[in-house]
């Protein structure tokens, strides 16, 4: 009888600190499953960035170094250039990757750095209490856009996966979600592909996860999960570049 379900080897057996309904824990698990299935745990180095996921190393059982806010892609560049044999991933939020770190992120993508980015897009700054971020949809209320995001004042949401689709150094750019089982399975496939491309040194690989933040969205977990469907209208799911 084949085993259908087991606890991933790369996931530490500890309780998550994440809020109820947050998608971080799900994405952590997917990442660990991919690492296990590819058998790369012993040569993987992760970068923990600044945000709710800064405690990545409490859950994921691989070598991990912390990078300053926004600098995960630069730190990953340093690692990958120094040790191309290692598999390297960064785990960043929309604030880390697309606001403070946008320069580092885009230049790494442009240079075709051969590592994988997991960008957790929950449309705001979760850890600091729900402030507006580059990916906050128009009209969404946050603690620093109390009347909702006004394009005249706060500009428009940035579509990072689409943007990276135009970069020559990018091998894979995709947006996925994990708010229903089918999407979870397809998200895992995309993430696995990203690591495979990295292993084959094809280029920069980017997987953006639309992720629920019930507490800062001021919703219960179920409504937040449903709200992700609405977000897909602004941030469509799909693959924007795949060099195959």
């Amino acid at each position: 009888m084949s085993q259908l379900f087991r606890f991933p080897q790369s996931l530490k057996k500890t309780l998550f600190h994440y809020c109820p309904g947050c998608h971080h824990s799900l994405i952590h698990r997917l990442l660990c499953e991919v690492i296990d299935e590819l058998g790369i745990r012993e040569k993987t180095v992760g970068i923990a960035s600044i945000g709710c996921s800064c405690f990545l190393y409490f859950y994921i059982d691989v070598d991990i170094v912390e990078a300053p806010h926004g600098r995960a892609c630069s730190a990953a560049t340093g690692i990958k250039r120094a040790r191309p044999d290692l598999l390297v991933f960064t785990y960043q939020g929309d604030g880390d990757f697309a606001a403070i770190g946008l320069g580092d992120s885009l230049h790494s993508a442009s240079r075709g750095e051969k590592f994988t980015v997991l960008m957790i897009n929950n449309t705001l700054y979760g850890m600091t209490g729900g402030q507006v971020s580059p990916t906050t949809p128009l009209c969404q209320k946050t603690t620093t856009t109390p009347l909702g995001r006004d394009p005249q004042v706060h500009g428009y949401p940035m579509k990072i996966a689409e943007m990276l689709g135009n970069f020559e150094g990018v091998a894979l750019s995709a947006r996925v979600a994990v708010n229903n089982p089918k999407r979870v399975l397809s998200a895992k496939e995309v993430l696995k592909k990203a690591f495979l491309y990295q292993r084959e040194a094809k280029g920069f690989t980017y997987v953006e996860f639309l992720s629920a933040c019930p507490v800062n969205w001021k919703m219960d977990p179920l409504s937040a999960t449903k709200y992700v469907d609405k977000l897909t209208e602004i941030f469509p799911l799909g693959t924007f570049k795949d060099i195959g």
């Binding site: 990078a67 600098r71 250039r81 320069g103």
Partner: peptide, 26 residues
């Protein structure tokens, strides 16, 4: 060895951080 001109000093020092974390003289 590795030489890379970064896009800024902030990036450069964090590339140093990465390369140092994996044990190279940087």
């Amino acid at each position: 060895g590795v030489f890379l001109q970064a896009e800024s000093e902030t990036s450069a020092i964090n590339m140093v951080l990465g390369a140092s974390a994996v044990g190279t003289r940087v």
